[in-house]
Design a protein around this nucleic acid. Structure first.
Lengths: 250, 250
DNA sequence: CGACCTCTTGAGTGAGCTCAAAAACAGTGG
DNA sequence: CCACTGTTTTTGAGCTCACTCAAGAGGTCG
């Protein structure tokens, strides 16, 4: 994640993407090589389901613009949001490419993606080992974020879970570009999404948001998140931005 | 994980390890090359802390024998177990090798490991790209397991969480060698470990174990797990072993 | 035979859930 | 511009699953 801002950011060949996670640190010749692999840019409206749990997927994606929600569904409709993917994130990389994918992905906003055919991606890895190493690091970073999330789910009360989520989103968005603290950060999440991410009910999320608001800690209203008292939030969650550090260029 | 049993399993050079996750699918010359990199076998007694959250780690490990618990601790002592590592699993791979590690690791049993110095591992990746690709898949599989775990934590009641854990452990152990259903599977976990993995208290784990026992579903006693009614357990969790599929040889 | 874990059971409490229903809001068509 | 419909947010009331506090029972080891 958190690509270092630089004077002359590398471009993703097929897409007009800057500082994309998988490509940003690559040398020019490798970028050129990627042009030869079937890459496609795709744009989809909010609500579109990119892929569905248990289906077979022969593509993966780099998110260029917008938010995508990755989630898993249990038989009776219970839902767990696994990750909110932001621009630069990679989606659809599977441990077993021949097996079904284990989660679904849905666009929360208008979304722009780079699409890779699976065999094409494999081929790229073979030809450009650095890409494979980058992929290992990206996946490892996602795993660390999942660990944060697990710790929230298992060991934090509702108020802390929400505080932690807010700080995480704020930090991840801040790493992607400057954000206007005063105006508030645009967050396209319904209370239901937050509930499904944090293992709560919508109703309880609502009450907890009220508590945070009335405590002067943070306000989420009409799609805008305002952090009112960061020190207090950081204090209550023990938030460390280390989890989102940048990876080495190798 | 789940390496296919084969007639003549590859050996991990320095260690007398068979079917190790990172090496199993490698060709002979690559294995040889690894000999030239600083690898070390290490054995540690139960309870040993391999590494500690927030410390700087310049090694990573392939687990050869025994169980290792990966966990995170919050300021006030709350603990979340992230993963129970079994033989063949890889530990200590970090998204940012220069940053502090974000969790701790402790041996639950006597443990044997292959140790890699960090720069040595990096060097191996550069020289043998297939290793990097394998690493990406291994990490991706771990992430999928973390997703299972998250779903339990967020959206399942205590009984289902424990049932799911039992089925997962049974399946992962089964993939590593034949297990004697009747005798029961050796599980070196205290109720406290289970509680910290599943976001419950020890006391509630105890009560729930009793419920499972009295319901004729599964019994965990004196370190032995017996699955008494797998269909019922599978039914209540919707357990799919897909999550633990083997990865491609590329 | 104590000292120390780990497991077990009881009793009471509370954070978060369910059920139910307003109120605010957004879009749509007349 | 407004009535009409569907979605999202908000609030109330009561319940329950899981937690806290407390204490006894088993096991293990020096």
């Amino acid at each position: 994640m958190a690509p270092t801002p630089r004077a002359n950011p590398t471009q993703c060949v097929a897409c007009p993407v800057r500082r994309l996670a998988l490509f940003q640190p690559l040398a020019g010749d490798q970028l050129q090589a990627m042009q030869t692999h079937r890459m496609e840019q795709r744009e989809i409206p909010p609500g579109t389901v990119l892929y569905t749990q248990d289906s077979h997927l022969d593509e993966s994606f780099t998110l260029f613009q917008g938010w995508v929600m990755l989630y898993r569904t249990l038989g009776d409709g219970r839902r767990q949001v696994l990750r909110f993917a932001l621009p630069g994130d990679f989606l659809g990389f599977q441990p077993d490419p021949t097996g079904p994918i284990l989660h679904s992905a849905q666009a929360l906003t208008p979304v722009a993606l780079c699409v890779f055919k699976r065999d094409s991606l494999m081929q790229m890895f073979r030809e450009h080992p650095l890409l494979a190493i980058q992929m290992a690091w990206i996946t490892s970073r996602d795993e660390a974020t999942a660990h944060d999330h697990m710790t929230s789910l298992g060991r934090r009360p509702a108020k802390e879970r929400i505080a932690q989520l807010f700080l995480e989103l704020h930090h991840r968005l801040g790493a992607r570009g400057p954000i206007d603290e005063r105006a508030g950060i645009p967050i396209p999440l319904k209370q239901e999404h937050i509930a499904d991410a944090l293992g709560l009910t919508t109703i309880h999320v609502n009450r907890t948001l009220r508590a945070l608001r009335e405590g002067g800690l943070a306000v989420l209203r009409s799609g805008l998140l305002k952090i009112m008292n960061r020190p207090a939030l950081t204090e209550m969650t023990g938030f460390q931005s280390d989890s989102f550090s940048r990876r080495p260029l190798l």
